[in-house]
């Protein structure tokens, strides 16, 4: 449990957005790579609750934002690689816009206070 104290858990609901962002930057990743990428990109501040990544990926598959294809890793292990669909990319842009709008507003409110 040492790990928990030094990292911040992801705010609820943002996991999908983080996955979208990750996949938007790097074309094809499998689950473990996505988790690592999110952690690395946030310079280890944000830690993915690793298991919950998978239900999230399934939800996104159902919504058609991403597709998964089985392939081999460098160590020749079978892994499912995910990439964004066109719908997924649109959704990514939409979510980022909405997020920036909200955070911008919050930031302005905080400055005024």
């Amino acid at each position: 449990m040492v790990a928990r104290s030094s990292h911040h858990a992801i705010p609820p609901g943002t996991l999908e957005m983080l996955v979208l962002t990750t996949l938007a930057r790097r074309s094809e990743l499998h689950g473990f790579e996505i988790a690592e990428a999110i952690e690395r990109a946030s310079t280890d501040v944000l830690r993915v609750e690793e298991g919950s990544l998978y239900p999230a990926l399934q939800r996104m598959l159902v919504k058609g934002w991403i597709v998964g294809e089985w392939d081999r890793t460098d160590q020749n292990r079978r892994a499912r690689y995910y990439r964004l669909t066109r719908t997924g990319r649109r959704e990514f842009e939409r979510q980022v816009d909405a997020y920036q709008l909200v955070t911008g507003a919050i930031a302005r409110v905080l400055q005024m206070a």
Binding site: G31, F32, W70, R77
Partner: peptide, 14 residues
């Protein structure tokens, strides 16, 4: 089955 395999892989890699 796919999901199980995927999650197993994750734990092993970690």
């Amino acid at each position: 089955q796919d999901l199980d395999e995927e999650m197993r892989l994750h734990v092993e890699l970690r």
